[in-house]
């Protein structure tokens, strides 16, 4: 199957089996390993990416459903020298431990913040926005603080 989509702002065309998920396309075909692999049943959220700006689990999303659409992965945000404000906030607040869930967490946060521009989320809203991604290291507290700080930084512009 030929798949045409926009990945991190660039047009991509790949030939992949029709039963592949987006996660398989990203990790196996394109070598983008920032999107993590774990439960493969949309429970843990480490594979979270943005599809047309909204957070989705790449492990159960058929690649064919991405035809003509836009996908953002963690590689599409900042790089180590120029971090996205959300990534910077995660570092500043000590929100990263083992780090395996962090790409998914950052993208889940971005999805909420992009949908609610200029709004400062309450703690319950942040927790709800992140509840699709499991983190076993941090207890979520510093992640929640990081997202609140990122929201404030982004709202200021």
């Amino acid at each position: 199957m030929r798949l045409d989509f926009t990945l991190n702002g660039e047009a991509v065309a790949v030939e992949v089996p029709p039963d592949w998920t987006l996660l398989q396309v990203l990790r196996r075909e394109l070598g983008l390993l920032g999107t993590k692999e774990n439960c493969l049943e949309a429970e843990c959220g480490v594979c979270s990416v943005l599809l047309d700006g909204r957070v989705v689990n790449a492990c159960i999303l058929l690649a064919a459903q991405c035809q003509g659409r836009s996908v953002t992965t963690i590689e599409g945000l900042g790089d180590p020298e120029r971090l996205h404000p959300i990534q910077q906030a995660f570092l500043d607040h000590g929100a990263v431990q083992c780090g395996y869930c962090i790409p998914g967490m950052v993208l889940a946060a971005k999805s909420w913040l992009d949908e609610n521009p200029g709004r400062l989320p309450g703690e319950d809203e942040i927790r709800e926005a992140l509840a699709g991604t499991l983190c076993r290291c941090t207890g979520y507290q510093k992640i929640v603080d990081a997202v609140a700080a990122a929201a404030a930084a982004l709202a200021k512009g």
């Binding site: 963690i74 590689e75 945000l77 180590p80 990534q87 995660f90 000590g94 990263v96």
Partner: peptide, 11 residues
């Protein structure tokens, strides 16, 4: 800040 943070937060 932790030494390995930037690599983790950027994937």
């Amino acid at each position: 800040p932790r030494l390995d943070g930037a690599g983790k937060v950027t994937g």
